[in-house]
């Protein structure tokens, strides 16, 4: 038996909106520690890892570990029926081939339940080793989204380079080139507006902008984004989910020319 009650249901709505176009089907894993997901896109270039810790739920019951295969497009269709202020409860019985999403309006005057069919998904769980990243950039998530969107109008790939000077996002296309440099800036009014660069070694990697743009759909989950880079490793683009966990996108680099 599984029953997870999330008062801030909008978080789950936002999570789905941010991953449904990247991943078609995924297994949600439920254990006593939390509700999680790991899935790759169909071309195995990007991987998403989601964690919503059990402590973040108002009520969390998971009698035994469960893996529930869901079509994210269908799950998103159902979650879109929840109001932004609604409380969302996820329920499933052991061995059941369905999951139920229950939505309660804040005033309890509207209660809906949606039952969705589960599916068998043969997904391979990858081991993600702990890594010391050469450069870690934290910046406003909206700024990162703006840069990815702007550059994708000019080129298909972005070179992200971190040096003592700052982080540089560069692209090149038929119409020309673009370079955007963000310097470390910690003298801001609000901490979430800061750009912080922790660099142990300079690093420069090339990535497909199409994927970066897809990751920025998670911008609504967090005011800041953390980009962790090391040569010879996928970049990690992480959005923290307030007091609950995170959504991390891993993207394999392009091979340098």
């Amino acid at each position: 038996m599984l029953e997870l009650r999330l008062v801030q249901g909008s978080l789950l709505k936002k999570v789905l909106e941010s991953i449904k176009d990247l991943v078609n089907d995924a297994n949600f894993d439920c254990s006593s520690s939390g509700f999680s997901l790991q899935a790759m896109d169909s071309s195995h270039v990007a991987l998403v890892a989601l964690l919503l810790r059990s402590e973040g739920f108002e009520h969390y019951r998971c009698d035994r570990n469960m893996s529930m295969g869901m079509n994210l497009g269908n799950m998103s269709k159902m979650l879109r029926c929840a109001g932004n202020d609604d409380i969302i409860t996820i329920k499933a019985d052991d061995g059941s081939d369905t999951v139920t999403f229950m939505f309660e309006s804040p005033t309890q005057d509207k209660i809906s339940d949606f039952e969705m069919k589960l599916m068998d998904i043969d997904s391979e769980h990858l081991g993600i080793p702990e890594a010391e990243y050469q450069s870690i950039v934290t910046m406003p998530s909206a700024e990162f989204a703006r840069i990815c969107k702007d550059l994708s109008g000019i080129g298909d790939t972005v070179v992200i380079s971190v040096t003592k000077e700052g982080v540089k996002f560069s692209t090149r296309g038929d119409i020309g080139t673009a370079n955007i440099v963000c310097r470390q800036n910690t003298t801001v009014d609000k901490p979430e507006e800061a750009t912080v660069i922790n660099m142990s070694e300079p690093v420069s990697l090339t990535f497909a902008l199409r994927y970066m743009n897809s990751f920025t759909k998670a911008t609504t989950l967090s005011n800041t984004v953390t980009i962790s880079l090391s040569s010879e490793l996928p970049v990690v683009v992480e959005y923290k989910i307030a007091e609950m966990g995170y959504i991390r996108f891993y993207l394999a680099p392009k091979i340098e020319e």
């Binding site: 790759m40 071309s43 195995h44 270039v45 990007a46 991987l47 391979e124 769980h125 990858l126 081991g127 993600i128 080793p129 790939t157 090339t206 497909a208 010879e232 490793l233 996928p234 891993y250 993207l251 394999a252 680099p253 392009k254 091979i255 340098e256 020319e257």
Partner: peptide
Amino acid sequence: VNPQRQITSFFSKA
């Protein structure tokens, strides 16, 4: 065009 690497060439099956 830079060739694209895959996630599976960095992370292996758990």
